[in-house]
């Protein structure tokens, strides 16, 4: 496979994952703004921060206005992380790697692009927002389904998965980092109940509210949620799960190419750390510090994969 193609697949799936994550962030922020109008501004600020576009937003707008933030995150093509930008970038990459993906995957991505382009041609009214966000999630599921149902399980597939999980791990870590102050104050009192709405938002933005309820037996605690998102190997958006997937797919590449790269050492070290650390330890050392380190390691891993598989030369 061409290095450029591997890079195109990797980024195509990063962008697809990003569009879905941004849609979930909007959904969670919108939910909170509905239920407690007075705390809405803080919520939108943290949504922008999680999406990594707080500075960009401030350079464009003076006020933190719900309609503007939503529009910025959903449709603004000058915001590279907006849903529309991410989908357009995913499709552009899909065109680049057209020969590596099946017709079904290409059509699912192309359809998604065309449908969103039409649906997001004008600002979305609040009453239509839940529908639009649901549609974005559905389209993501469609692409994923096409990928799983039609693609050969070879190096092409591996690069798609690595892109997906790198973006996902990055996203979950950011959500936790932005929200850590919510989880933090009550940490000394393990088992204390948490601001309901706040923790619901966290779980909602990773599509984990129901799953957590099942696992926790209905009792929620800060340490429980953090553990769930960091270390629960059953949770498909947790750091351990995502990094585990990256490690597995990289090991498939190692086997298929019969060659071990530096990125294999990096991912092994990272997943080793996640497997050996406990949530109690994380809270002792500081959740924020843990996540900052994690994000740095993840960034380094991404760059190493890019080099090892010659995405750019």
């Amino acid at each position: 496979m061409l290095g450029k193609t591997a890079g195109g697949l990797f980024w195509m799936f990063r962008y697809l994952e990003r569009s879905e994550n941004t849609a979930r962030l909007i959904d969670a922020g919108f939910r909170i703004a509905l239920t407690r109008p007075d705390g809405a501004d803080d919520e939108w600020a943290s949504v922008l921060q999680t999406a990594g576009v707080a500075d960009l937003y401030r350079s464009r707008h003076d006020e933190l206005d719900a309609a503007r933030v939503i529009d910025f995150l959903l449709r603004d093509t000058s915001n590279p992380s907006s849903v529309m930008s991410a989908i357009a970038a995913a499709r552009q990459n899909a065109r680049l790697v057209r020969t590596a993906i099946t017709r079904e995957v290409w059509e699912a991505v192309n359809d998604t692009y065309m449908i969103l382009k039409q649906a997001l041609a004008r600002p979305v009214a609040p009453r239509n927002l839940p529908g639009s966000l649901a549609m974005i999630r559905q389209q993501s599921a469609l692409v994923r389904g096409a990928l799983h149902g039609t693609m050969l399980r070879n190096d092409v597939f591996d690069f798609c998965r690595i892109g997906t999980y790198l973006e996902r791990a990055d996203n979950t870590a950011r959500i936790l980092d932005v929200k850590y102050y919510v989880l933090l104050p009550s940490i000394s009192q393990i088992g204390s109940s948490l601001d309901n709405v706040q923790w619901e938002t966290i779980l909602r933005s990773v599509a984990g509210q129901r799953a957590y309820r099942w696992i926790s037996g209905g009792e929620s605690s800060p340490i429980g949620i953090a553990d769930f998102l960091l270390f629960d190997g059953r949770m498909p958006r947790s750091l351990r799960f995502s990094v585990g997937k990256i490690a597995t797919n990289l090991s498939y590449l190692e086997r298929e190419y019969d060659h071990r790269h530096h990125c294999h050492d990096l991912v092994e070290a990272l997943s080793g750390r996640l497997n050996q650390t406990t949530i109690e330890h994380v809270f002792e050392e500081g959740l924020h510090e843990f996540i900052v380190d994690f994000l740095a390691d993840l960034g380094q891993l991404g760059a190493q994969i890019d080099r090892d598989y010659r995405f750019q030369g």
């Binding site: 496979m1 061409l2 290095g3 450029k4 193609t5 591997a6 057209r98 020969t99 190096d155 590449l253 190419y257 060659h259 598989y309 010659r310 030369g313």
Partner: peptide, 23 residues
């Protein structure tokens, strides 16, 4: 077959070679 651009190719040992994930 592969779809390549000029930036994927270079001359190596008297051949035109494409940059792949394996070299």
């Amino acid at each position: 077959v592969q779809l390549v651009e000029g930036s994927d190719l270079r001359v190596i040992d008297g051949r035109i070679a494409m940059r792949t994930t394996r070299g």
